[in-house]
Design a protein around this nucleic acid. Structure first.
Lengths: 179, 179
DNA sequence: TCCGTCATGTAAATGGTTACATGATTCG
DNA sequence: CGAATCATGTAACCATTTACATGACGGA
C-alpha cells in the first residue's frame, strides 16, 4: 500500500479496507507493530505527520526492492476454510428447512457483495482512468464478480435440492398418516 | 466426524483429509489436545483401541446434542485472504510475463482440483449409494466444482488481458526503436 | 464543550502449524 | 530385520483479533 503513496497506520487500514478488502484485511494490532519492524529493518521510513504524535510512513528504496522480490514469488495455495460447507456436510443431522435458511442467508450476502463489485468497477474505471494500476485493480474485482456469481448459482441449485428434500419428507409423513 | 463413526485421532485426520479436505483441515497439533478437552467436557468418550496405547473416541449423547446446536448457528462470513490477488493488485510493478506465469500456475492447480471433484463425485455416488449423508456430501463437491470452474474462466480471461498488455508493451518498444 | 474521527499503541487471548520425540504394528 | 505406517503427544513459534488505554483535533 505504501508503494501507492505515503500513509499513516490509520490511513493504511482504511486504504486496505477500501481497495483490497475483498480479498485481504489487516487489523491495527498487526499494522502498528509491523510498521515498527519494517522501519527497524529499513524497508519504510517514518516522517512527522500533520498532527502531534502522528507518523507518515513511506517506502524506502530498499523496501521497494524487497516488495518487487516478494511479488515474484509464486504464492502457494492456502488451506481454505468454509464453515457453511462444514455444516452442510453434516446436513442430515438437521431439518432441511434449517439448512435452507443458512444457505439463503449466505446467498443474500453474496448478492450484496456482487452489486458492490459491479458498482466499484464502474466507479474505479471513471475515477482512476489512466492510472497504470487500473487494469490490475479491475482484474481483482472481476475475480470477485465471477466467483460470487458462481456461488450464487450454487446457492440456487442447492436451495432447490433442499426444498425437494423437504417436500419428500412431508409426503412420506402424509403417507404414514393415511396408511 | 465422530458423528459418522468412532475413530482414533489418527483416523480422524485421514477422514478429514479425504472427505472435507477441500474446505476444511486440521493438524495433529489441533486434534489431540482438542480430543482431550472434549473428553474432559464429556462430549466424547475414549475407549481402548486395537493396539497398545491407542484410543478410539466416540461421540456421547451430550456431544451429539452439542453438535446439533452448533450446526444450527448461522456461520458469519469469514475474511478471505488471497495472496495471488494481492500480488496481482500491485501488478504494474512487475513485467506482465511474470504475472502470467503466476496466473497460469494457479490455473493448473485449479484444473487438477476440478478433475478431482468430478472423480470424487462419481466415486461417492457409487460407493455411498443410499447413505443419508450422500446428497449433502455431493452438494459440497458441487460447490467446489462450480467455484473452480468460475475461477478457471477468470484465469483465462486474465491471461488474455495480460498477454495483450505484453504485446502492447513490445509494440511501443518497437516504435521507439524504429522512430 | 462535547462528540466524532483521527491516531497510536499494547496485552491477552486465540487459533493454528511445524517440528520434534516416542513407540507399536505390519508387511515385504 | 528394516521400512512404512499407525499412533500419541508436546513445545515452540507464528499469525491474528479483540479489548483496552490514551490522547489530538475539528466542527457543531
Amino acid at each position: 500500500m505504501l508503494s501507492l503513496r505515503a500513509m499513516s497506520g490509520y490511513e493504511l487500514r482504511q486504504a486496505i479496507e477500501s481497495s483490497i478488502g475483498n480479498f485481504w484485511s489487516e487489523s491495527f494490532g498487526q499494522i502498528y507493530p509491523t510498521l515498527k519492524r519494517l522501519e527497524r529493518d529499513g524497508f519504510v521510513s517514518a516522517d512527522e505527520g500533520g498532527r502531534a504524535g502522528s507518523k507518515v510512513y513511506s517506502l524506502t528504496e530498499s523496501g521497494r526492492e524487497r516488495l518487487g522480490r516478494w511479488l515474484e514469488v509464486m504464492p502457494q495455495p492456502q488451506v481454505p476454510r468454509n464453515e457453511l460447507l462444514l455444516k452442510l456436510f453434516f446436513g442430515n443431522l438437521l431439518p432441511p428447512e434449517r439448512l435452507s435458511e443458512q444457505v439463503a442467508g449466505w446467498r443474500r450476502g453474496l448478492v450484496a457483495e456482487l452489486t458492490l463489485y459491479q458498482a466499484r468497477a464502474a466507479e474505479l474505471s471513471k475515477r482512476m482512468a489512466g492510472r497504470p494500476g487500473l487494469p490490475f485493480w479491475l482484474m481483482t474485482l472481476r475475480h470477485g464478480e465471477l466467483r460470487t456469481k458462481a456461488l450464487i448459482e450454487w446457492c440456487d441449485e442447492t436451495l432447490a435440492q433442499l426444498e425437494a428434500m423437504a417436500r419428500l419428507k412431508d409426503e412420506s409423513v402424509f403417507e404414514e398418516v393415511t396408511r
